[in-house]
Design a binder for these strands. Sequence first.
DNA 1: TATAAATCTTAAGAAAGTCTTAAGATTTAT
DNA 2: ATAAATCTTAAGACTTTCTTAAGATTTATA
Lengths: 231, 231
Amino acid sequence: MDKLNVLVCDDDKAIADALEIYLKYENYGVIKATNGIQALKALAEQEIHLILMDIMMPEMDGLSATIKIREEKNIPIIMLSAKSEDTDKITGLNFGADDYVTKPFNPLELMARVKSQMRRYTSLGSIAVKNNILKTGGLELDTEAKELRVDGEIVKLTATEYGIILFLMKNIGHVFSIAQIYEHVWDEPSYSVENTVSVHIRRIREKIEINPKDPKYLKVVWGIGYKIEKY
Amino acid sequence: MDKLNVLVCDDDKAIADALEIYLKYENYGVIKATNGIQALKALAEQEIHLILMDIMMPEMDGLSATIKIREEKNIPIIMLSAKSEDTDKITGLNFGADDYVTKPFNPLELMARVKSQMRRYTSLGSIAVKNNILKTGGLELDTEAKELRVDGEIVKLTATEYGIILFLMKNIGHVFSIAQIYEHVWDEPSYSVENTVSVHIRRIREKIEINPKDPKYLKVVWGIGYKIEKY
DNA sequence: TATAAATCTTAAGAAAGTCTTAAGATTTAT
DNA sequence: ATAAATCTTAAGACTTTCTTAAGATTTATA
């Protein structure tokens, strides 16, 4: 099952690192940012499920960032950590945070709050979404939608084609022999040399390469095997 | 035009009355209960959007009530008020509360948290607007009314159909195998390939698709599974 | 450049997955 | 208790995909 990602946004490296340890222990993915601008960037680029945001940060403070985030993204939950004046808290909450914790905080308590907020992703059988896109150059394999995009265009793959691409893209740059590919994708031993793999490779190339005869992504290494080129 | 209703569940009348004043000032509807059993009764009879629940109460304590409520109702948010031991807090959170406040609390802070939680019903002041509609393209699944609308028209679904659509729409764009769908919706392992899923899928298509043979919403990915298309 | 080995291409039949239908079983409502 | 609605199962039709094999092409090497 896919991981839930937490964006830790704090300019105090010690705190950020400590949080990372706790969060990873709870099996969350962790992305770090040291100011609001970085946070916005991370949000644009990655799938984030929860933000732990410090109010006091250089560049763009946590409050402003929170407001900006709320303007466009509704999904992630935001928790401000701050000095303990009540007014601060209230202001923060009204500007879009779902909860807050005052520093210094009890890590266990914080984790409990994180879990509590994360519950919205896991209730009633919904499956959390994550960083599920394998990328190299113009190739993007979405392992959730089971879709491949080549330069942004969706390319339809059959189950076997998907299996081959998935295997190779999980190991970008690594060359695998036909036998290895067969065994991994079909999950059964390959007694003879399997021409069927070649046929699938060719079909994949037809779908993803501009010039299948001079492939950019799905390369052959003569006498050895195939790989997805690293870009 | 409905008001958002808060169920105040505390055996201490002074506290309950004070909360009522603050809540009414913020234009929430207030229902009071002095123990867990009363709370459950109120929940069954009225539309409640948020519960302020005391941990210590006669008859049935707040924790037990919280657990019971969570078993059947997913909608209301619960906040426990308790003595300040950390373990209490954490236990409470893990048993289903969304947030908690320790006594004695600052009423302004509490109101801020109430508002924060109420935000899920949408931020048009304290007027309830449903935030529980899953949408994509012309499909709208109202998880509260348990209704599906296709281009605004209500489509009646059976329980199983609803379960399938709910699961898929909670994960729009995500492809699930027949076995995965079966396991999530039926909540039991799928030993053999379950044709029953196909049949339900077909019936759903008949209801929601203009042309079931070329579905716009409920797509099949050959050899892999089904998904609700993201629009 | 000739040769062998590996890969590529093609097309047709085989296999696998999905769709449809209908009938009987089960559940729900009255 | 009965009727109505819904669910499950099974079988065959249908569609898409996979595999195979044979010949063509490409590459490495002498």
